[in-house]
Measured scan of single mutants.
Amino acid sequence: MASDGVVVEIGKVTGSVGTTVEIPVYFRGVPSKGIANCDFVFRYDPNVLEIIGIDPGDIIVDPNPTKSFDTAIYPDRKIIVFLFAEDSGTGAYAITKDGVFAKIRATVKSSAPGYITFDEVGGFADNDLVEQKVSFIDGGVNVGNATPTKGATPTNTATPTK
């Protein structure tokens, strides 16, 4: 695992066909100046998982989280898009600690492993708008004895992609 920078880890949970599971997305290594904004994309298989919603985690402190935390689910493109932009203008609602960034709610549709993997990152910046190093650890849903650990090695991303 990367020793510096922010680590975004997609949790690994267990479920069975027809059940709804909650998959946490963790941030670790949050910089001392916090995270003022970030955007990134995960990939998944809508034939295996139906993403039914995404909720902000406990490290989102904006009293009205829909102003700073936004997501979009595109089953036709097989992606989930995340956007966080601190909304106070003063840094008061920045992410300042490690913990759960988001909770992905999904219904298991198939007995195949439900991988959720890193696809791309736009950027991560602290309260001074300084770009942060970030790496990703894939996860998803274990169905029966299947284990979604494909790509469990962190993917280092030093520069934003478009």
Rank of each mutant, 00 (worst) to 15 (best):
D119V: 04
K109I: 09
A125K: 00
Q132W: 02
D55L: 05
N47A: 05
F101G: 04
I79Q: 01
N145M: 07
L49P: 13
T90Q: 12
G15R: 10
K12T: 12
V81Y: 01
F101L: 06
T107I: 06
N127I: 02
I23T: 06
L83D: 02
G18T: 10
G91R: 08
R28N: 10
T147H: 08
V130G: 08
Y74T: 00
S32L: 07
V100A: 11
A146G: 07
P31R: 10
T147V: 12
K78F: 02
V61D: 04
V134N: 04
D119L: 05
S3Y: 07
N37F: 00
S3I: 05
D138Y: 08
V13H: 03
L49G: 15
D98Q: 15
A72W: 01
C38R: 00
F69V: 04
A102D: 06
G114T: 09
K103H: 10
T155R: 09
K133P: 05
I104G: 06
T149P: 11
P113H: 04
E50P: 07
G144V: 10
V130Y: 11
T149W: 13
S32G: 10
F101Q: 11
F136D: 10
L83F: 02
F27K: 02
A36C: 05
T71D: 09
E86R: 00
N64M: 08
I73R: 10
Y93A: 14
D76M: 12
G91P: 14
G11Y: 04
S111D: 09
P63V: 11
A92D: 13
I35T: 03
I54F: 02
R28K: 11
G139W: 10
I59R: 14
S110L: 12
G122T: 00
P31L: 03
V143T: 11
D128P: 01
D62L: 14
D138N: 10
E50C: 04
F84C: 02
S16Y: 06
F40W: 15
I73C: 07
R77D: 04
T19I: 06
D62P: 14
R105V: 14
T96G: 11
T155D: 06
V130H: 13
G144I: 09
F101I: 10
E131K: 01
A106K: 05
I137W: 10
P75W: 07
G139C: 09
T90A: 09
K12F: 15
A36T: 03
G144Q: 08
D39H: 00
F27Q: 12
G5D: 14
D76H: 02
P31Q: 09
D45V: 05
D98P: 08
V48F: 04
A106S: 12
I80R: 00
G29T: 12
V30S: 14
G151H: 07
G57V: 03
F69E: 02
A112I: 12
I35D: 04
Q132L: 09
I104W: 14
I116R: 01
F27P: 08
A85R: 01
A36L: 07
F101W: 15
F118N: 10
G18C: 06
Y115C: 06
V17Q: 09
I104M: 15
I116Y: 06
G144H: 11
I79T: 01
G99V: 10
P31Y: 13
D138F: 06
I80D: 15
T153I: 08
T90C: 11
A106L: 10
Y115S: 07
T14S: 08
D76T: 05
I80P: 00
G29R: 11
A92C: 06
G99L: 11
D55C: 13
V25E: 02
V61A: 11
E86K: 01
S16G: 08
I10H: 09
V25G: 04
P154Y: 13
Y74I: 00
F84R: 02
G99D: 13
D119C: 05
I51L: 05
V21I: 07
F42I: 02
V134Y: 02
V61F: 10
T117C: 15
S32T: 10
S111V: 03
V141Q: 13
D98S: 09
R28W: 14
T19G: 07
C38A: 08
E86W: 00
D87K: 07
E22N: 07
I23R: 05
D128E: 03
N127T: 02
E22W: 15
I137E: 11
D128R: 10
D62Y: 15
K12D: 12
V7S: 10
N37V: 01
P46K: 11
T149V: 11
G139P: 02
V21Q: 05
N145T: 11
T117S: 10
E50I: 03
R28V: 06
C38I: 00
T157P: 12
G11V: 09
R28Y: 15
L129C: 02
P160Q: 11
Y74K: 00
T107D: 10
T147R: 10
V81K: 01
D39Y: 01
D4W: 05
T159A: 09
S110G: 07
A72G: 02
I95A: 10
E86P: 01
F84A: 02
N156A: 12
G144K: 12
A2P: 08
P63Y: 13
F136A: 13
V143E: 10
A125W: 00
F124H: 00
D87L: 15
I95Q: 08
V130E: 07
C38E: 00
E22R: 14
G140V: 12
S88E: 02
G144E: 08
N127A: 02
P24D: 03
G151R: 09
G15K: 13
Y44S: 06
S88L: 10
S88Q: 09
G5P: 05
V6P: 06
R105A: 13
K67F: 10
A36Y: 00
P113R: 14
D45Q: 04
G151I: 07
D62S: 15
I95R: 02
K78M: 04
E120K: 01
I116G: 03
L129V: 06
T19E: 01
D126A: 02
V25Y: 14
P154M: 08
I35L: 07
A94F: 01
E131H: 02
P113S: 04
S110Y: 04
V21Y: 05
F118P: 04
K33H: 15
F69P: 12
G11E: 09
K12P: 06
K33V: 03
